[in-house]
Amino acid sequence: MKLIGQKLSVERGEDLIFSDLSFNVSSGEALIIRGPNGAGKSTLLRAIANLLPLLSGELTVEDPDKEFGETEFPQLCHYLGHDNAMKPAMSVGENLVFWQKFAGQPHLDIEEALEMVGLSGLDSVPYAHLSTGQRRRIGIARLLVSYRPVWLLDEPTSGLDTPSQSQFEALMKVHLEDGGLIIAATHIPLDIGTFKELIFDGFVRETAP
């Protein structure tokens, strides 16, 4: 699978956030979007997820994976935004079970996913009791309980300490090795081997790996 963005422009409110932005990512590749706050990193991710309308330009998927057939592109994505989309009133397990049912395509068990993010045994704890870093890790566990080939990650490591960050980098590497595709916006360098970079700083630079 190859995701191609051609000459994308996005407007937010009355502002043109960026225009004529192009990129491409293939299965097994990661694209890291970097740049200062307010440069438009989150906007680009949300536009790719079809949560914001494109003003102009085109997003196309070339040779899609056969197993997903005609599935629309947003349905192939996991999106991890600033918020983790968890309900404080429900337990960690209930939250994850809900997302697994809601998203379909079950991948890991809840218990396995919690183990992957280093929080095994917490499934009956109310989400409200967790710390910021733990909440983020539950948000990451949501990516694991249902399978999606494309991960769209907005500042995925915010609130994570160094060990959790390297744990997450390992998870990202595994996802890429499995033929997944990652687009992440971050201002902290990620150690996930080779990746493409898109830098927002008044210019857009795309660097090949």
Binding site: E14, S22, V204, E206
Partner: peptide
């Protein structure tokens, strides 16, 4: 490596 300029929000169209 491709380099493209980003058009900064001008607001001119709105005016």
């Amino acid at each position: 490596m491709t380099v493209e300029t980003i058009k900064r929000p001008s607001g001119l169209t709105a005016l």
